[in-house]
Design a protein around this nucleic acid. Structure first.
Lengths: 287, 287
DNA sequence: CATAATTATGTAATTAATTTTCCTTATCGG
DNA sequence: CCGATAAGGAAAATTAATTACATAATTATG
């Protein structure tokens, strides 16, 4: 993925033709990945050796290597080579949403802290009762998903989108309670108060939030999620996909900690659903 | 980009060597993308022309084309090349969840019907009132997200996770009402009844569901979402990511239909949130 | 079960693509 | 303006990939 940065790096001393090739590559990645060195050279108005040298300067072993690296980069990054491309037609919107979602998942993948996830999963699977707190549209969804994912594994969970409720929950917490909170900004003043209260009642807390934020500073275990938002105000925040993935990862880790138990609950739920439908048990759980 | 499916397709009649090459490719994508045809042929124990023919059978124009397509596919499909790989460690779970989510988004991208999305968006932006129905964990989330995305654009939406409620809503529908429903299986008996009722009251309906299902047969506009579920019962269904993306696309299309109006509502919401927080207005909307 | 038809595979020849070598032409700092 | 240095191109050399053709394996059919 360094190729992308090398290509967009203004610092890299660029001769006239180098800049020309760079522009061509960024402008039409698909052409470049599909072309021979001669085709590319012709279209760029340079000689083939210049292309080879260009690739070497970018850190690739050869033109073939360059093409492969470029292809590897494109799928996720494709749209992001031209970030300010306007989106209006249906296919542009589809590309935009899907690419940004994939890009977000990719960035998440690179930044996830394995140890913190392990810590969080350990807390969750040891909990007698789990309180999931998240408010305000996006984090509400996440809190609800925590409940939706974990109750299927036999966990006792209560989710709330109401911070006043969270305060009461914290006050009523038994010693085996664990709280898990979500805040995309990490700056929710009331949630910060909730976390202080949880700490006061010795309830361990897991926070899915921006690192360095007030919320992150108060949680027992922080799963930092720091993702750049695009400039497009119209586009729903793709950060939700990352949060959702973290929930899935945590739920999966909890499930694997005791496969027998998880399976038992998942099967029971499935049987109930199937008998309530048309008996087709190949369908997935929990529509 | 069917290459992934072509590679994993058991149907494709495989000769002994074909299977051998397939296995090698799936086993070490990185080696293959970086190797010459001779290196690959030697390692597979076949002759170079066999490799060329193998690539052609998979639908690629040449070995170079095959490498590029493979490289393009790798990140997303990486894990899915070895679907039965056990997931136990934290990094395996992370890879599994993230790759499956990306793969799901990718498949969705390939199957989305642009015209149906356009139709659905047109219905939504012309609606005086939108009713979003979805029940049972996953579809509940989707219905709620429809509300969450659309109210920000100035739409009047009510979401419900209660099918009895949906029946009443349908009965009380004004002539400018549009209903949008979600069902991952498309076999929810009560939802089918709801759709019949909506039809009876002349309320146009949009369904996000499996094609060919009872639900899909009763909706005015169907956005078919047909995705293979993995065999892993422990893993939360990745189909949710696809449904979420469809919501985002629809919301985006609605927003672009009247940018001025959308912007006005989005700004108002943002201002309110910022003044309720710490005044940092670079933060995203609707935590 | 034999045999024809078909398909798969390898070898060698051919073609295409890429890189290297060597030479020319810009560019930059005195 | 001159010399040094870097950039670029032409052509040769090399390497990679494909095609043509021959052979082996497999499958279908009587």
């Amino acid at each position: 993925m360094d190729l992308f940065h090398a290509l967009t790096d203004e610092e890299r001393s660029r001769s006239r033709l180098d800049a020309k090739i760079t522009a061509l590559v960024l402008d039409d990645v698909d052409f470049v990945t599909g072309s021979t060195i001669n085709e590319l050279a012709e279209r760029a108005g340079v000689s083939p050796p210049t292309i080879t040298r260009f690739c070497r300067r970018l850190g690739c072993a050869s033109f073939a290597d360059f093409k492969v690296q470029l292809a590897r980069m494109t799928y996720v990054g494709l749209r992001y080579l031209k970030p300010e491309m306007p989106t209006t037609t249906v296919s542009e919107v589809i590309d935009d949403i899907v690419a940004k979602a994939q890009d977000t998942l990719f960035s998440l993948h690179n930044q996830l802290d394995h140890d913190r996830l392990e810590d969080a999963a350990r807390l969750l699977r040891g909990a007698g009762f789990i309180q999931a707190v998240g408010a305000g549209g996006n984090s509400s969804m996440i809190a609800n998903e925590i409940q939706n994912r974990l109750f299927r594994l036999g966990c006792h969970v209560q989710s709330t989108n109401d911070k006043a409720m969270a305060v009461m929950l914290a006050a009523a917490a038994t010693p085996d309670t664990v709280a898990i909170v979500s805040s995309m900004t990490g700056r929710d003043v009331e949630l910060v108060r909730c976390l202080d209260l949880y700490r006061h009642h010795n309830v361990p807390t897991i926070a899915l939030t921006q690192s360095g934020s007030p919320v992150s500073e108060r949680a027992s275990v922080v799963i930092p999620i720091d993702l750049p938002e695009g400039v497009n105000i119209y586009r729903p925040t793709s950060t939700r996909y990352a949060y959702l993935a973290v929930i899935d990862i945590l739920a999966n880790l909890v499930a694997y900690a005791d496969r027998q138990k998880s399976l038992q609950y998942l099967r029971r739920i499935k049987e109930e659903l199937v008998s309530n439908r048309d008996g087709d048990d190949r369908q997935l759980l929990g529509d």
